[in-house]
Design a protein around this nucleic acid. Structure first.
Length: 873
RNA sequence: GGAGGCGUAGCUCAGUUGGUUAGAGCGCUACCUUGACAUGGUAGAGGUCGGAGGUUCGAGCCCUCUCGCGUCCACCA
């Protein structure tokens, strides 16, 4: 087939993906002769659409999995979706609202039917979008957190934790979203600084003899106050402790208690205590056996305990309370006050801390081994610094509120017997109460936090608790790739869940990446409208360019900025690769290409093979270290600089020459190097490498299941490569001289060369002529053999004289040589000062000392030659 | 309040256990349509690595202090 002059990804990306998929290359097979390598894809929400975060996540994982697959591992990348309990429910409710419907209208069953319909409609959208990225995941094992398999695992885990006493139900302060009308975990609350007020209220003593002043940011909660606290050592209030206060706006009297929680230096040193609506107050309340009076409904309105404020929205009640306090003279003052306010991470409403009966996971026993696992490197964070963030969270984690007052999710597997009150938690649905035999049992109405099932993802997807073949072979997984923003939500919980339920850490490494920001460094967000749609970028530049742009120059864990310019640069690179391939194929067409083993390698051949070998070695090392940015950089530089700019040009004298054997040999090397370069690049840019590979002579099958290149020491040709670089120096020197003398590049010049390695220069004469733009090269013994005015240069290998007649400017020549000598003197001085330092000579590694000595020798030789040339002028 | 990150060329960023002359892309200058590629080639310019000390034969990298800018966690009512 004919390759177009310009790389056009639209011609083949979709076609190639479909070919891969239908060929079954994504499927991981259980093969005892292979070593498994497993990555679990972080399941995107079913409501989600592909964004740059996914694109980066997918690119990193796909690069790794393709690399490992080519290396011969049985590579499983398991994809799936998360039911995203609250996020999905919020969206469905919004949609229903447009139709004038509420959850109550539909009822639980009706609502769930809608939710499943929604899942059918949108659940695959993001999976389709992922395919555009080239993701080579095993779609045959695709999972969904609410499917039978995952639900089974959830049930198993819940019951086991319950039986161990690690899941309990209790009245605790939780974060309540009045909009979603559900409890949230601590992790699901986002704090943001807001300008608010500090209202100072006077609470008179019941006997009328005195009063205290308290301050609050939420005046409406005073209706639920059951005490005022002062510090036990606060001398100002010693006499008040034990006294009773009259709570304004109510008919209640509340005590003054002493509690060390109070900071005497802050505010008035008196704190109103509202156990039902504040986490700290709740604790104080427990210590002093205070009543808990909840004054707010689930929707954020005030309840009957709020007296005349009953039925008012929380903010309306706030205004009225303040107004009434002012009216009765108990409003002391109002201060401006900025403070952190918690918001629901899904609907962004202000959350209310509220006492509520919820289900919790007891964290302490689970957190301890999870911390140990990371400390003992059973699981390692990459970069390592993220383990500190993990420790910090794990060490301070509070019990995990797992019940949600939602319908879309795993229903809590607990039944209550209405007759005897027994709480039933079993792996199979009960039909009757095991205690009293009553059939009058009902299931808990709530569902589980969506992250409860996500926490089981690495093993629930493989069949746990069944000892399936997949589970035995692929678990534990090798690396988890995700952004730092969900370490708490997800990574931590997978680690302790894996340890608790499977006895093993769920993954060996956690590769943490940063986020993709916009061109100005801002976070991409819906509200800013600065998000870039990966699909639009793919449409414009192709998936390969986008992928490459998300990896190159990005250090693990660091944020990166998206920019069209960067994608364009990557596209240009691929275009370069494309045209290099076109060049090779054009020349190879219709020819028999000898195998690389049968070729007698020319110096330039050995040089490029040597470069290829070190590239293979370094790319492999860096990929194994998850240094994708470094690895892609290495291979790009190899292809562009070494292969295209040098080797292809070096091959031209042979290709266009008369010697058929040389021609065939050069073609063999070109094909060999190109094929290896394509393989090295394939994990990064799978589509275009596949497209080119399929056109390459001597290849069959897909590049994605070919062998990744292995470093071959015998082909490293280090010495030969080094020697050849001397030839390259000559070429560069001539180019620079011509440019300097304003000699037109198209004008062929004559070269006279003095060298001690005549053989090397002679052997590469054709290359020098071609690349330096010269017509003739004559080896001479010294400058006296050269007629007429010349420009000249000195390299380590040679002195070069170029007779340029009229173009030669003696003064310019003199200046250039003088500058060169100055530079060389600098180098010699630097090296000699090091060598004259006894400490350096005795303490530095011998290799470095020797290198310095070599350097002095080399530059002294060059300096002499420069001086001689200067003399000749 | 605690933790962590960043500061390197005009811009965006790499720089892996300390070791030659600190790199890349974009941009910039000059020249070039040379039989793969102008989404290109050749030759260049451009950095006292935020600042100050210290350790070391040797510091962009390690230690201390300091300045500036993001981030996460906790939170005083």
């Amino acid at each position: 087939m004919e390759m177009q002059k310009t790389y056009n990804p639209k011609d083949f990306e979709d076609r190639i993906y479909a070919d891969w998929e239908s060929a079954g290359y994504f499927r991981a097979e259980i093969d005892e002769n292979k070593v498994p390598f497993t990555i679990m894809m972080p399941p995107p929400n079913i409501t989600g659409q592909l964004h740059m975060g996914h694109a980066m996540d997918a690119t990193l994982q796909d690069t790794l999995i393709r690399f490992k697959r080519m290396q011969g591992y049985s590579a499983l990348w398991l994809p799936g979706c998360d039911h995203a309990s609250i996020a999905t429910e919020v969206k469905i409710v919004e949609k229903m609202k447009e139709e004038g419907l509420t959850k109550a209208d539909l009822g639980r069953e009706g609502f769930l039917k809608r939710a499943w319909d929604w899942k059918e409609q949108y659940g695959n959208r993001i999976m389709t979008q992922q395919r555009k990225m080239g993701t080579s995941c095993d779609w045959s094992r695709q999972a969904f957190t609410l499917d039978e398999k995952c639900s089974r695992a959830v049930r198993e885990v819940f019951v086991n934790l319950y039986n161990k006493g690690l899941i309990y139900q209790g009245d605790r302060i939780i974060n309540w979203c009045p909009c979603c009308k559900t409890a949230l975990s601590d992790a699901e609350v986002e704090y943001a600084e807001e300008a608010g007020h500090f209202w100072h209220f006077r609470y008179p003593a019941a006997d009328g003899t005195s009063s205290v002043t308290v301050a609050t940011t939420r005046p409406e909660t005073m209706l639920g106050d059951t005490a005022v606290a002062v510090h036990p050592d606060d001398e100002r209030y010693q006499s008040l402790v034990g006294k009773t206060l009259k709570l304004p706006l109510t008919d209640r009297e509340i005590p003054v208690v002493a509690d060390a929680y109070v900071d005497p230096a802050f505010g008035t040193g008196c704190v109103k205590i509202t156990p039902a609506h504040d986490p700290n107050d709740f604790e104080v309340g427990l210590r002093h056996a205070l009543p808990i009076i909840r004054v707010m409904n689930d929707d954020g309105s005030m309840n009957e305990k709020a007296g005349v404020y009953c039925g008012l929205d929380r903010y309306e009640a706030r205004k009225r309370v303040v107004a009434d306090m002012e009216k009765n003279g108990n409003l002391v003052k109002i201060e401006a006050h900025t403070h952190n306010v918690g918001h629901c991470y899904r609907c962004h409403s202000t959350v209310e801390p509220i006492v509520s009966k919820q289900w919790f996971v007891k964290m302490e026993p689970l957190a301890k081994p999870a911390i140990q696992a990371v400390m003992k490197n059973k699981t390692s964070f990459v970069p390592e610094r993220f383990s500190k963030i993990y420790y910090n969270w794990m060490e301070n984690v509070r019990d995990w509120c797992i019940s949600r007052q939602l319908w879309w999710g795993h229903r809590i597997p607990v039944w209550y017997c209405k007759d005897c009150g027994k709480v039933i938690c079993e792996k199979e649905d009960p039909t009757a109460c095991p205690a009293c035999g009553s059939k009058n049992i009902r299931q808990d109405e709530d569902v589980l936090d969506t992250w409860f099932s996500s926490a089981l993802w690495p093993f629930s997807t493989l069949g746990f608790p069944e000892e399936t073949e997949d589970y035995k072979y692929f678990y534990p997984t090798d690396v988890l790739v995700t952004g730092y923003d969900i370490i708490f939500f997800w990574v931590s919980r997978m680690i302790f869940s894996g340890i608790e339920h499977t006895g093993k850490v769920p993954f060996r490494d956690v590769l943490i990446h940063g986020i993709v920001r916009d061109e100005q460094g801002r976070k991409m967000s819906k509200s800013l409208g600065n998000g870039i749609d990966p699909l639009v970028v793919i449409d414009k530049y192709g998936a390969d360019s986008l992928r490459l742009s998300l990896l190159t120059g990005v250090a693990p864990g660091n944020d990166t900025r998206y920019s069209d310019t960067k994608v364009e640069a990557c596209r240009n690179f691929i275009n370069k690769l494309w045209n290099a391939a076109r060049f090779v194929l054009m020349n190879a067409e219709g020819k028999t290409i000898p195998s690389i083993e049968s070729v007698k390698l020319a110096p330039a051949d050995k040089w490029i093979v040597s470069k290829l070998q070190s590239c293979i070695r370094e790319v492999t090392t860096n990929l194994n270290k998850y240094e994708m940015g470094v690895a892609s950089d290495l291979v790009m530089n190899f292809v562009w600089d070494d292969f295209c700019d040098w080797y292809i040009e070096l091959s031209k004298p042979a290709l266009y020459g008369e010697d058929e054997k040389r021609k065939a040999d050069a073609l063999s090397v070109l094909c060999f190097v190109l094929e290896n370069a394509l393989k090295l690049l394939h994990p990064f840019i799978p589509f275009v490498t596949e497209e080119i590979y399929s056109n390459l002579p001597g290849t069959e099958g897909s590049i994605m299941i070919s062998d990744f290149p292995r470093y071959n020491y015998k082909s490293s040709y280090k010495k030969e490569a080094k020697a050849f670089e001397g030839v390259m120096e000559i070429i560069k020197a001539v180019r620079a001289m011509k440019k300097d003398a304003e000699c037109p590049p198209s004008k062929k010049v004559e070269l006279f060369v003095v060298t001690e390695n005549k053989r090397l220069v002679q052997l590469n004469k054709d290359c020098i002529l071609k690349l330096a733009g010269a017509s003739n090269l004559t080896l001479v013994e010294d400058a006296s053999a050269v007629q007429g005015k010349t420009v000249s240069a000195v390299t380590e290998l040679a002195q070069i004289y170029v007779p340029l007649g009229e173009l030669v400017d003696i003064e310019k020549e003199r200046a250039r040589l003088t500058a060169e000598i100055e530079r060389i003197d600098g180098e010699i001085a630097r090296a000699e000062s090091k060598l004259s330092n006894e400490q350096f000579v005795s303490k530095a590694p011998q290799k470095l000392v020797d290198a310095e000595r070599e350097k002095v020798k080399k530059y002294q030789g060059m300096k002499e030659k420069c001086l001689a040339q200067l003399e000749n002028l």
